[in-house]
């Protein structure tokens, strides 16, 4: 037990994590590209045509995994923040910051593809559906976090302030989701129930899972690349970073 603890904390130092991130990134890039390629092939050519929605439905193979990832990443960021505030590990805050743009990107993709899907299905670009509205609010939460971290010059303060905001956000998300759902059921009319009743074909589910895994690998790869540059930027003054820059030059 003692041994394992020491090992874990060894990688919480930015200096030791930097090369590890550098080794992990290419692996996850390859995994991401492969899975997304397979997933896209399956969603366009293997998955059967939906008898009600035609070919247009295929966009959900991007839409649904992107929504999953946008929520999942927010949770992971909050988790890193909790670790950072508890154990005072700088790397945890850097991980949260490295993940934020990816999370925001997935929230945006989810909204964009949702609206692309909505046009042929519902005849309008935007529907105030509970899930879409919640996704929009999630995007706002991401943007708020990134704006706060960017606005604070003192890094230590930025780290901790951002972490507190993420934890506040994660506590609020269920309340927000519940209230939006309640609001939506009271204003029924424009909404169409998307799934739940319709049973999903097995290949469709498999395709969605492959896409989700691909997005997941992409998130890790992107976060690793980003965390590397965050580490370098912050540790620029330290000896190990100077050595590294010297080697490159």
């Amino acid at each position: 037990m003692q041994n394992r603890l020491i090992n874990w904390f060894k990688f919480s130092s930015p200096a030791t994590f930097y090369p590890l991130a550098g080794r992990l990134a290419p692996i996850f890039w390859v995994v991401a590209v492969t899975l997304i390629a397979i997933g896209l092939y399956m969603s366009f050519f293997v998955a059967p045509v939906d008898y009600k929605q035609g070919d247009g439905y295929r966009i959900i193979f991007v839409h649904v995994p992107a929504s999953w990832m946008s929520m999942f990443i927010y949770l992971i960021m909050a988790g890193w923040s909790a670790i950072g505030l508890t154990f005072n590990t700088r790397l945890s805050f850097m991980m949260a910051q490295a993940l934020a743009p990816t999370g925001a990107l997935f929230a945006f993709i989810s909204l964009w593809t949702g609206s692309f899907w909505g046009k042929p299905m519902w005849g309008t670009w935007w529907v105030w559906d509970a899930r879409i509205t919640s996704e929009l609010i999630l995007l706002f939460l991401y943007l708020g976090y990134m704006a706060l971290v960017a606005a604070i010059d003192d890094r230590r303060r930025a780290d901790r302030a951002g972490a507190i905001l993420l934890l506040v956000g994660v506590v609020n998300i269920p309340i927000i989701y519940f209230s939006v759902k309640w609001w939506n059921t009271l204003h029924q009319g424009a909404t169409i129930r998307m799934n739940g009743q319709t049973s999903m074909d097995e290949t469709m589910l498999l395709t969605m899972l492959i896409m989700a895994l691909g997005f997941w690998a992409y998130s890790i790869a992107a976060a690793m690349v980003r965390v590397q540059s965050i580490i370098l930027e912050r540790e620029a003054g330290s000896t190990w970073a100077q050595d590294l820059i010297g080697e490159r030059a």
Binding site: I137, F140, G144, A147, G169, N172, I176, F178
Partner: peptide, 23 residues
């Protein structure tokens, strides 16, 4: 409290707080 003394304080408060006000 999070934006205390920041240059962009006012606008930032709006961005942070409005999503939380929704319920």
């Amino acid at each position: 409290a999070l934006t205390l003394g920041l240059r962009a304080g006012g606008v930032l408060v709006a961005l942070l707080v409005l999503p939380l006000y929704i319920p």
